[in-house]
Design a protein around this nucleic acid. Structure first.
Lengths: 336, 336
DNA sequence: TTGTAGGCGTTATCAA
DNA sequence: TTGATAACGCCTACAA
């Protein structure tokens, strides 16, 4: 009973394969009784149409790929939740891939998808300063792509982002208004656009408040926890900033650890605010002020846009940038 | 150039489709030059063999399904990371599905997979007190299943769990040793085996220390944050426990919030320890004592077991229970 | 309303 | 080392 298929069913039921097929595809051209008989028999024999055979015929996989730098991360896992939500409703499968922020992995994975494996791709990218032709190949194959949060400017596709510039401006201004004179900006890779945009908000807020921009207060960190600890410790010892604006959640945590060890009192000696999707930010010691992106909603939006494209197949769908708003939560870490 | 396939390539190159196929499948029966010529031409024309057609032929999908109750959760996202890691190395795709702890979703998804869609399934289950025949159907189709963390006792399959009983015993004993006399046990669904096992450790530790077990200190919570807040507030007001052993991370957080609002000092008035995979537990106010499961390693182990089965196809692979060890981190919330 | 038949793109078998 | 051919399981014209 291992290899049950439509033909065997047909033989058993003395019905043609086409009718069986119709029973499973909501075709109107089938007698209700016949259909029920078929479905009952199929259920009993544990049969379902083979997905791969259908895909081969239809050239539709009802599957979409989600490519993200990390999974175990509050922002991305919430975004994936949103995507999953929409995909489930549409009856789509989700193929998940994690790049670890390694551009080559992204390329290699996308290339593997380039053969009808998925109907569309939702991604947050990992390699901005690179050649993105591997993505253009997808266009040729009519595999739509939607970017979220981290996008490639040079690729035309729907994009879901947040108002990073405004949030950064507001966050920096907030620190200034609480009295900070020397605010460090923490970033993982300042050459990446999302880092640049956030930094611009910081720079402009400083300017507005007549605080001179000091390049040495832009702290380029890494993905390695220990290295970050060392970097930040040195910064706090040598630069003695009185404010920290972290463009990445992880760096705020690292700063907390350094402050604990150095007996720096937050917020008295140092005020901190950070981009973060951490649900329990209020439970930190002290409660962390955050710029919180609507991660879940971004996932929903990205998936919705993808299905829009899929459903209007080919017709020029808006490949615009969709900007959602982050929220600023002022908590104790910045004196709130 | 949309519908390039092996046949077109064959025509263009004046080579048979079989040879083309061989070029892509690492077959030894092909001239090196021919192979290179083919691959070069294919690359140039952006061709890759269609996955679905191959699957249909081979009855191998190189895909595995991961089914979990939640994604945006420290434990599960880390476990998924581990699974992803192993799958990537094997060149497998991952189909992700979230059940929201709704048994029906699990059933429906598993049933969809029951047609060759995936080669194997890794899951943490959502419905213990139910009929699990939908999983037995998978056995018939030779789709191996590996459970992790939350398992069905009545299904024979490889299982990856942690030493929950021992950890719970140790955690409870720790609370008792710090002087707690009245320890509440928080659980989401006490009828589920993982909740039962953890509770047993709690009960036995009480007994060992001659503390009478009080059923009213077993607090059955829900998945809803607000409801939990209400429940816990009431417990703290009426029962006035001096210790909390939470079998689920989320409930510890909820307890923190209630304590904040009620001005209950942790750990002075109330000591807390919880199962939790939160990386930043030391940053909480106060630092949370945790029983931390090796989530990532569990993912690795589960995936490895699945591939073991897949590779020894059919031969009776050990369907044992594999028990990894959690770590106890005593921090300030329990007086550490 | 049902059946027949051809093909989706690939690969394994067999023959050359 | 290469080529011809027949499946894999399904779906959709088209015919009945």
């Amino acid at each position: 009973m291992d290899n049950i298929n439509i033909k065997i069913l047909a033989k058993e039921l003395n019905i043609s394969t086409s009718t069986i097929s119709r029973a499973f595809n909501g075709s109107p051209d089938i007698n209700k009784d016949t259909k029920e008989k078929i479905l009952a028999f199929a259920r009993e024999h544990n049969f379902l149409p083979n997905h791969y055979a259908s895909n081969l015929r239809d050239k539709k996989s009802r599957t979409l790929a989600v490519i993200v730098p990390e999974i175990a991360n509050d922002f991305f896992s919430q975004a994936i939740n949103g995507i999953e939500e929409v995909a489930r409703k549409k009856g789509f499968y989700i193929l998940l891939y994690r790049t670890d922020d390694v551009f080559e992995k992204e390329v290699s994975f996308v290339n593997y998808l380039n053969n009808g494996k998925v109907d569309g791709i939702i991604m947050s990218v990992s390699g901005e300063a690179n050649d993105h032709n591997y993505l253009r190949k997808l266009e040729q194959k009519n595999v739509p792509v939607v970017f979220f949060d981290r996008v490639y400017e040079d690729i035309e596709a729907a994009k879901v982002t947040t108002n990073d510039y405004d949030s950064s401006f507001a966050a920096t201004e907030h620190l200034l208004e609480t009295g900070c004179k020397k605010i460090a900006y923490l970033v993982i890779n300042k050459s990446i656009s999302i880092g640049k945009v956030r930094m611009q908000g910081y720079v402009d807020a400083l300017q507005k408040h007549n605080v001179p921009f000091d390049d040495s207060l832009v702290i380029d960190c890494s993905n390695d926890e220990k290295i970050n600890y060392t970097i930040l410790k040195k910064v706090l010892e040598e630069k003695k900033p009185d404010g920290i604006f972290s463009s990445v959640e992880r760096l705020a945590f690292a700063t907390y650890y350094v402050c604990y060890d150095m007996n720096i009192d937050i917020p008295r000696d140092l005020k901190i605010i950070s981009f973060s999707s951490l649900g329990i930010a209020p439970l930190l010691c002290p409660a962390l002020s955050t710029i919180t992106q609507p991660a879940y909603e971004m996932g929903i939006k990205a998936a919705t846009l993808l299905f829009d494209e899929l459903e209007k197949k080919g017709v020029g769908v808006q490949k615009k940038e969709h900007v959602l708003k982050s929220k600023l939560f002022i908590r104790k870490s910045s004196g709130g």
